[in-house]
Design a protein around this nucleic acid. Structure first.
Lengths: 336, 336
DNA sequence: TTCGAGGTTGGTAACGTTACCAATCTCAAG
DNA sequence: CTTGAGATTGGTAACGTTACCAACCTCGAA
């Protein structure tokens, strides 16, 4: 019975003396029981049960060569359901490999990301999975990480050659835009992230490419690339749709912009104004119930997480060596 | 330059000899620099920078009395955006207290939860925050946890008296149901979780109470309480609405059931069938654009996470002692 | 000048664990 | 009965860190 204060930690020694064996026998039993007599193993396990002993994993990983079994995961915005699913995918694969994840939210803040990474390293993580903010790469150089393998997800960091899992941003945006063009639209607005955000840039490129192929010039008046949240996206959509020469369709480069745009479009429709067609990079629930047709460029964030973790563990297991690899996951297009 | 294999860990000793001081001086400097000459501190910090040294937090926490700075968080379903926000709230407060979180997903599986908890304990977490599965409480008893403080969120565990953060499930469900009754509905269907899930039970109770107050008997034909995912919720809604005597309104006890119900309702409306009014416990985006009026019983999952973490840290700081506390967070009702 | 208080520095031991080695035991073959 | 191979067991040291103590230094007061 452990009481309020102090309550010294239960150690392998107590278990050993309780079972009448040496600490080494307890350690060996807990490690799988190779070369330990079955009756002693039983006594040890009984003592463990009775005392409620948990092995101290920190002390264990202190010995050289012992992995900590921890993976550090830093994402940019846990409030976004996409990143929740991403984290879930990572957690699943980690659990399958007997590892645990330490999760941090960088909130797109560079300094916070640096702090998270150094903290993860200090806690002896076996590997790192990062959705990088768009800042510097200095703190992510392999030599700064002390040989802890790093996998980037969703975004690349300029000048940093490491394992990376990406979406087919350019292709998805291209195909989504083409579907609008095929439907007869020629004046297509764009809502997206700052161009310094990797995905924002790539998705814009796909949009631009499709427009250019049809000989259409992109009008800067109907391109808004600075919205990081729903409210800003709503305002940008409003400005665009209030124009004399308003777009008849909108390409939205991510979930947050789509929700904002649709909020504004819903408002207009309730006022009897026309609503433009929408293509959204990123799915959202009940898109089929929207008052305007919404085409979805969909992908599986959970799978993205699983792939990132798989890439990491292939490095940890030594089953993959050599040059950094990039996996680009396909996206699907769902017409309304 | 650290090369591929081996690459022994950089220790405080290397830093010390590089700075020409003893390891103790390095330790003291890193601990805040009390009673260390400024010029030596500078030499130490320069060496830390130059070598890229990170203190080994595991070794650090091995010393008795040193906290690990880790909080174990186990939630039931990270794919649900609510729990993503919950985790975010916990992470935020933990970061404010200089702590890191270890995150596990139990997937409503009892065995997995037990495994997570014992793993967290083995990794010397300073505290635990749990959205419990509905199973046993044995592995959560204080004496089994070795004095590691535990906070439950969202749900209670029968027979376990610990700090808990809950929502006002009963009151919210009651008020939501009353709003339907006030609008003239008397035949109100119920969609929810298994009754063994704490919130499922409480929300049903609120619904039942409101009905009883108006002298209405709940018809078991329009009560479905076994759906854990969107597809099952859709089927349940369909069965209910296909009845001769179909409900004119539906009370949905959670996000997943709401989405499922609305998917079915949207289908019916496209076919020209009538759609019932909906009250949803849990918000979702773009609810204002639905083809039927949706009343939202809303709450802040992120705040729930923040409250849980705050409760935990008040135990860790010793600013709270004594009997377990329960915090019940209010919910708001948003009419369409 | 001596003394002592207080600031600064370093050596030692300990935290809980396991790799390594040495010691002991078992048992079959000679 | 001896030998030795192999299985089993335990003692010791080390992982990286910091609390504790002892030693030293500085400087003002007596």
């Amino acid at each position: 019975m452990s009481t309020s204060r102090g309550a010294r930690q239960l150690t392998i020694k107590e278990v050993a003396s309780h079972a009448g064996v040496s600490p080494m026998t307890v350690s060996r039993t807990l490690a799988g029981g190779r070369n330990v007599r079955p009756d002693l193993q039983e006594r040890v396990m009984a003592a463990v049960q009775e005392l409620g002993y948990y092995r101290n994993e920190n002390a264990r990983s202190l010995r050289p060569g012992q992995p900590s079994g921890l993976v550090g995961v830093a994402i940019t915005n846990l409030a976004n359901p996409y990143y929740g699913n991403f984290a879930l995918g990572v957690e699943e694969v980690a659990a399958e490999h007997g590892r645990r994840i330490m999760l941090g939210n960088s909130g797109e803040d560079d300094a916070r990301e640096r702090q998270l990474v150094s903290d993860f390293i200090g806690r002896q993580v076996d590997g790192l999975i990062l959705v990088p903010t768009s800042g510097e790469a200095e703190h992510l150089r392999p030599e700064r990480l002390g040989d802890v393998p790093l996998v980037l997800a969703s975004r690349r960091v300029p000048g940093l050659e490491v394992d990376t899992v990406l979406l087919d941003d350019v292709g998805g945006a291209y195909r989504g835009t083409v579907s609008l063009l095929d439907a007869g639209h020629t004046r297509i607005g764009f809502l997206g992230n700052r161009s310094s955000v990797f995905t924002g840039e790539r998705r814009y490129r796909g949009y631009e490419q499709a427009m250019a192929e049809r000989g259409l010039v992109v009008d800067p008046l109907i391109v808004a690339r600075a919205q990081q949240d729903v409210a800003a996206a709503s305002r940008a959509a409003r400005a665009m749709l209030d124009l004399e020469d308003a777009p008849t369709a909108i390409f939205s480069a991510n979930n947050r912009n789509t929700i904002g745009a649709l909020r504004e479009i819903g408002r207009r429709i309730r006022e009897g104004l026309p609503g433009p067609a929408v293509v959204s990079f990123d799915d959202f629930e009940l898109s089929e119930l929207m008052p305007v047709p919404v085409t979805i460029i969909d992908h599986d964030a959970r799978l993205l997480g699983r792939e990132a973790a798989t890439l990491l563990f292939s490095r940890l297991d030594g089953s993959a060596e050599g040059a950094p690899r990039t996996v680009e996951l396909p996206v699907t297009i769902e017409h309304p």
